[in-house]
């Protein structure tokens, strides 16, 4: 654990909570892509299956549980509780164009051909492009609300801080994970937009 990793995790947590609170306080999910939020729930579900198989630390377990819980709560607010405010007409990105190629890539390029490892790889690839429905929606409607911009900034900052974390870990621990790094660079570039 280094300072970039910790601030990256906290920035990620801040992004998730900003979005959840925004929807809760305004009682509206206008301008938010439900499809991106479903993809993020899928990302966390497929990545954190190791909750069932291995224990790393209390920090690790609690953050994973919080991320999964918040992402499902967000999906629930958008599609159930405040679905009257959900702007489905503008949320028209075809997610199968992301999920199918990403699934194929995860089967082809992974560290180990085992179910859990392929699902972890799938989640890494999917996370890097999961924001595209949200960016597509903003491009269709024109402007994003200020809070949505804060949400996107925190999410982008999180991945940028992880890049610094990987540089740190490469120099000080010899740690190097090509799949995470390439996907992380792609993801950071998308958020720079």
């Amino acid at each position: 654990m280094n300072v970039f990793r910790l601030t990256g995790d906290l920035s990620h947590l801040a992004a998730i909570i900003i979005l959840l609170l925004k929807i809760w306080k305004t009682r509206s999910c206008a301008g938010i892509s439900g499809k991106s939020q479903i993809l993020f729930a899928l990302v966390f579900t497929t990545r954190y299956l190791d909750l069932l198989t291995s224990f790393i630390s209390l920090y690790n377990t609690s953050m994973k549980v919080i991320y999964i819980g918040c992402s499902y709560a967000t999906v629930y607010l958008i599609y159930m509780k405040f679905r009257a405010t959900y702007d489905g007409n503008h949320d028209s990105f075809r997610v199968e164009f992301l999920v199918v190629p990403v699934g194929g890539l995860a089967v082809l390029i992974n560290h180990d051909f085992s179910p859990l490892e392929i699902l972890w790889t799938f989640s890494i690839y999917l996370e890097s492009v999961a924001i595209l429905p949200q960016l597509f929606m903003i491009s269709k409607t024109g402007e994003a609300e200020t809070i949505t911009t804060h949400y996107l900034f925190c999410l982008g900052l999180y991945r940028a801080l992880y890049l610094f974390n990987w540089i740190w870990r490469y120099y000080f621990e010899g740690f190097f994970d090509m799949i995470a790094i390439v996907a992380g660079v792609v993801q950071t570039v998308l958020y720079c937009d």
């Binding site: 990793r5 995790d9 990620h12 990545r47 190791d50 198989t53 291995s54 790393i56 630390s57 690790n60 953050m63 994973k64 991320y67 560290h111 180990d112 085992s114 859990l116 490892e117 972890w120 992880y162 974390n165 994970d177 799949i179 995470a180």
Partner: peptide, 10 residues
């Protein structure tokens, strides 16, 4: 390569 058990990052 990396095994899933070693994925300590979130």
């Amino acid at each position: 390569g990396m095994r899933v058990e070693e994925h300590d990052e979130l």
